[in-house]
Nucleic acid binder design. Structure first.
Lengths: 352, 352
DNA sequence: CTGAAAGCGCTTACAG
DNA sequence: CTGAAAGCGCTTACAG
């Protein structure tokens, strides 16, 4: 028997029971801190467990108790800042309470399609699930229901389930009002998504808010100033390029996300326009690069949303060391952060 | 019994055995496609299993077989582009082969510290692990070894384990040579990390390569032109700001990552410098925003590295539908992508 | 406060 | 080709 072989065998509950001179049932109780165990017994068991490097097999525990201590986190993409930030915050919060994250990235080949959630992914694997901006299909809702899994939705709500999000309409309203208050009247929008793209709903609320603000101020809208986009910087840049090539162009752009705003700024600069003198740009998010790029934006605290959702889920799992709370709908506040990408529109006055 | 209750109970192997009129052993064999099952029996079992929506309980399977079909993916951060891209690619590759990812983000409060990998995270939870740019401690290596887990390292190698990475020295060499070939002689570097930050090793190889190229071309280096940084755009911008405020400043900056390069560009622009006329900047990565920002960079295919690592791990787990291969050291190629952030240095000639 | 025993739902030799 | 039975390592009533 080599040293490596010897090390291979991890100790089981039976080992510590034998070594401590008690039954496995007692070991189980002692280690889990249940009542009905005498202090001396508990102490002895704890000591032996430590000596033997004992850690309960999660798979055996799971079979017997039905709990895995893992929660499924489901995202439509992972490579974008918003989602990665969310996952990171969720993972940390869960881990602090002894839980782990099983990650599902549902991105498919085409941006307007996604993979479905299946029984294989969840059944007896996770104790609950957190969805990230993910409208669920009927089938998926039925599945989650049948599996009896608690669920918390971040962003796009899921019917009858706790939800954590920002007020999308308000965020875009603040962004647009900022532009208007600066004196802009010719404002374009980037981030309209075709309504057949069912798995992204946030866009609609933001676009609607933009329309509302424009209407309220009696500002004219131009169809060709409402730019679609797949919500990437690249596509926003391409769309903006076309927009700005026209003689009749806007003095400002409201983008539904910072990544798109960054694309729009870059496209403008590449065409020789100065920001903010020739074009103002505002976004929503406060992306990791927005500060450095001087982008004016409506900041949302993404990590806080991840933490909130994780805590709500932990509570519904009955985890006891989680901060109290009963909230089932939390709307995280946003705030306008004015930087260097917005200013009053340049007016070709005589004195200019 | 309400509809919901009825749906709650998922069927077990016993249910399909009864329904199909065979033993559970036969069901197990039939469903896993083992030999020694008659075609008719197999067919019947399959049919019944489908009707009952049967999916084997992964936790029971795991207890009995020792396999979980899940691999642990361990990252020092998750919110940065490089890591999120890696995780996304790994997850997709694993899922195609019926495996899932349990995610661990080891980021701690301070950027030069990280959480340790523990027995709790891995023991009986994962069949293998993939590390992302993560030097392992002695204790962690011992743990992985004792647990008998296969491991594949992406980026920073782990002793005696398969490794997937780019050639860091070559990448920085190409970036620096590009600047030199353009005629730059005054070149600064961003991305030196204090050597006590043990969990980030890539930086050293890149910095060494930069020094080598400078020396080979007989170019002078200035201590104050080697900028530290925590590898974020913000810190790179702050450092660059100081650097450029000096009268004696470089004509080009080689950054060890695109995020830092973006920070450097932004800082320069904020000080009224034009890119590339007044300052050239080159990075390494080809970050999602680099194209739109016109950043010249040495591209690495991050997703490919994730896929390669996942496949190597799957092979070592004996998963049979993975493409053949025996590679244990794969170095993914990089390529220079010239965009708008680099040009020959501006020389104040008479004719200028 | 503690133990014996059943049970969680599979897989795996072992027989036949 | 198929079944009976042991075993994976816990948790949980049930007794005492």
């Amino acid at each position: 028997m080599t040293a490596r072989d010897r090390h291979r065998r991890m100790s089981t509950i039976t080992d510590v029971a034998r070594e401590a001179g008690v039954s496995v049932a007692t070991v189980s109780r002692a280690l889990r801190g249940l009542d009905r165990v005498s202090p001396t017994t508990r102490e002895r068991v704890l000591k032996v467990a430590t000596e033997l490097d004992y850690v309960a097999s999660p798979t055996a525990t799971s079979l017997a108790s039905g709990r895995n201590q893992v929660v499924g986190v489901v995202a439509p993409f992972l490579t974008r800042w918003f989602f990665a930030t969310l996952v990171s915050a969720i993972e940390k919060t869960l881990r602090q309470h002894g839980h782990h994250v099983l990650l599902f990235d549902l991105e498919d080949d085409s941006f307007d399609r996604r993979l479905p959630l299946s029984q294989n992914m969840l059944w007896k694997r996770v104790d609950g699930v957190i969805t990230l901006n993910l409208p669920m299909t009927e089938d998926e809702l039925t599945l989650i229901d049948r599996l009896g899994l608690p669920l918390v939705a971040i962003g796009t709500p899921v019917p009858d389930r706790p939800n954590v999000r920002i007020d999308d309409a308000l965020a875009m309203r603040v962004a647009t009002e900022h532009l208007v208050s600066l004196g802009h009247e010719r404002i374009a929008y980037v981030g309209a998504v075709p309504s057949n793209v069912a798995h992204i709903q946030t866009p609609q609320a933001r676009l609607d808010a933009f329309h509302d603000v424009m209407r309220e101020h009696g500002l004219a809208e131009h169809d060709q100033w409402i730019l679609g986009s797949d919500w990437t910087a690249d596509s926003a840049a391409a769309d903006t390029h076309t927009l700005l090539a026209s003689a009749d162009r806007p003095t400002a752009i409201a983008a539904a996300s910072d990544e798109m705003a960054i694309g729009a700024m870059a496209a403008a600069r590449a065409q020789g326009l100065r920001i903010p003198q020739d074009l103002s740009v505002v976004g929503i998010d406060d992306h990791a690069l927005s500060n450095v790029l001087g982008l004016t934006t409506v900041r949302q605290d993404v990590a806080a949303q991840g933490r909130e959702a994780a805590e709500i889920l932990l509570r519904s799992l009955g985890v006891d060391d989680v901060a109290d709370g009963t909230a089932t709908e939390v709307v995280v506040p946003t705030e306008l952060v004015v930087r260097r990408s917005t200013a009053a529109p340049h007016r070709p006055l005589p004195a200019d």
